[in-house]
Design a protein around this nucleic acid. Sequence first.
RNA 1: UGCCCUGUAGCUCAGUGGUAGAGCAGGUGACUGUUAAUCACUUGGUCGUAGGUUCGAAUCCUACCGGGGCAGCCA
Length: 459
Amino acid sequence: MKRTEIAELINSDCERDRVLIQGWVRTRRDSKGFFFLELNDGSSLKNLQVVVNSDVPGFESLDAISTGGSVSVVGKLVPSEGKGQTWEVQAAEVTLIGVADENFPLQKKRHSMEFLREIAHLRPRTNLFGAVFRVRSRLSFAIHRFFQEHGFFYVNTPIITSSDCEGAGDLFKVTTLDMDAPPRSEDGFLDFSSDFFSQQTYLTVSGQLEGEAFATSLGKIYTFGPTFRAEDSNTSRHASEFWMVEPEIAFCDLQQDMDWAEDFVKWVVKEILDTCEDDLELFFNFVDKGLKERLQFVVERPFHRVSYTEAVELLLATGKKWEYPVEWGANLQSEHERYLTEEHFKSPVTVYDYPKDIKPFYMRVNDDGKTVAAMDVLVPGIGEIVGGSQREERLDILLENMKKHGISEIDYGWYADLRRYGSVPHSGFGLGFERLLMFVTGMANIRDVIPFARTPGNA
RNA sequence: UGCCCUGUAGCUCAGUGGUAGAGCAGGUGACUGUUAAUCACUUGGUCGUAGGUUCGAAUCCUACCGGGGCAGCCA
């Protein structure tokens, strides 16, 4: 007999004579002569109530069943006599699959996020984390749908890379050298010529540069894969391993790039609102009271756009005392970004045209010579969710910037080639998948939207 | 990496110098429809670890370990 998922039965429009359900016990309530089980099989946030009478075959086998155990039930789907659910299953036959003893850590009450984090292997069995990871899957799918339906091609850029200066933080080293006795050259340095790839290699911090090669051939591409940063960052929005979405678009300037970023964020949020109603309801009610309104706002209203220079003027005009001074030429700090999105505009904000000196070599220099065509999308509660730019397509200026940033013309000759042969204006951006998921669910810590989070000191 | 907070039963927490406590979970029993079921009884702890102060330390001090928050760096 084939198993029917609880998600399907919850929404059934008729009685069913004989169904097989299998799942985990969320709670058990005993009475004389029968008991209730609430079963969850992960297909839905909702549980299905099962009534087990003492004359049902297998009744004794469930003596020891309690919260956390797994069972198999064959029975009849009937309208529930009790309140709180439309349907329930009147068991005709029950089988114990696996017990959970009294040490099962998940109880029928609220647990702290910190405690659940320590049992990452069991927390997806809770309502909250079940919802988080179902939405994570949906969001992932929504991202693919958006790009596929807008003519983008999915490109898998390498995870192991030899590029060490993409300007995006510290890298994890990849090696097969014997760490206890590594080979050294005559001058005492590590000898990578005998390493696996005959050179020093790392885990990728970005697929952008490779993405540009494919954008300038396939037209519109996106990458979506794991990214690794070895920064010793200990905050609620940093992880050492996370997933990044990086579209790259040929024949596209910064204005169009900002349009794409905004359309993209709006589209996927709308998609989640449309496809994850039950799970979202939990976030609206128990995680973040303002979430529903915020998500609808994001979908319906245009993002504010403000140049970096205007943003600086605006922050200075507040007359506020900042912990970090506001000054043209310096990076916007968290407190500044928060003010812009949470207090001044009360909406997502796209800040563009940043000072050249605080941005990487590949960003296109504007006509003023002082700024580059860069943009960040900032959202309330999280801050930067998207970072992007128009890329420098003029060979001479690119080479000059590479020299200034100390980037090898030999190692990056292939990147310069993209400007030597049929160079075109092109732009792209990177979006932190987990940060978007935090924004969509209202979850406050990135560690709670990653199945098994990797952070400094924790893998 | 810096600053701050925190560690007591399976979980959530009370106890701030004088022999370790509650609720929930678990166990036993009761109850013919429950909804975090209810009611009665009940098991359960080298108070993160190691030093120190003290007649006496869960409580005060130091170090280490774990957890958390904020900031920097970034997505």
